[in-house]
Nucleic acid binder design. Structure first.
Lengths: 139, 139
DNA sequence: TCGCTATACTTGAGCCGTCAACAATGTAGC
DNA sequence: GCTACATTGTTGACGGCTCAAGTATAGCGA
């Protein structure tokens, strides 16, 4: 598990330098893109990417500033604000996905065989909060 | 891998609330305690716990303020400053280790069998930067 | 011995995330 | 319809880490 710190940092750095996106930014875009209507309540987003609500507020500030995500209000509940993926956001995600996905693939495939990857996935899956999400990195 | 974020956070929170130590604080103390003379150059410490040199400077500020670590200079090289574990630091480590180790043990043993743990350890070991260090958490 | 480059460490600025407190809205029970 | 509680989201203060730049020392080759 200790390796995770440096590994995550590595993927993050790659993403930041090549596309100006944080790993968390990337995941937000990814989750939104998969959603019906490309939108998600901030609360749900927080839960998915394991951030606090305030973390989400801060993160979305950046994505909104870049025009990748917009705010949208909810007709049936005035408390909620949706995070709505824009076309630019979608495009950005696709662009970033190319290098990110291949980076991850290289990393794991260089180290483990197919069978080992499956075994590893099976075990790690049992940890809380959907660890599989990292191998399945999108688009 | 995604689970790691919340899991680490959990162990960290446990350590902070019960002993006032960060996970990184803990690891610094642990590494120092195992070292010949209970001291380590800051550079080496940085490498071991995967932090930048400035990160180490900041982290040690806190431990020095608490009296768990002291600065010591090197006779043969005026550039280096050692981080030197004090007796209080050693005591603190032992104290914190009790709950921390059992927390980790519970977490993994509740989820995996002995054989699975070994398989997992064997695979994760191949990742860079000594991932085994986390199961082997000390003292 | 001089000058160059490498190494050890610190510092200032800034990012990213947390927590605690708060405002606004929703909902359930009476 | 009121009251009480729960849920959604934002904000201020702050912690922990990074990066870039700077200081000081070391060590090497001409």
């Amino acid at each position: 598990m200790r390796a995770h710190a440096s590994t995550t940092r590595r993927f993050n750095a790659e993403l930041v330098s090549e596309h100006g996106l944080t790993l968390n930014d990337y995941e937000v875009l990814l989750h939104l893109s998969r959603e019906e209507g490309r939108r998600l309540r901030r609360v749900d987003l927080a839960e998915r990417i394991l951030l606090t609500p305030s973390g989400i507020t801060r993160l979305l500030e950046g994505l909104e500033r870049c025009g990748y995500v917009e705010r949208a209000s909810c007709a049936s509940d005035a408390r909620v604000t949706y995070a709505q993926l824009t076309d630019e956001g979608e495009a950005k995600l696709r662009e970033a996905a190319r290098t990110h996905v291949s980076g991850i693939r290289d990393f794991f495939q260089g180290r483990f065989s197919k069978e080992e990857l499956e075994a590893l996935g099976g075990l790690l899956e049992r940890l809380p909060a959907d660890p599989a999400g990292d191998l399945d990195c999108g688009v």
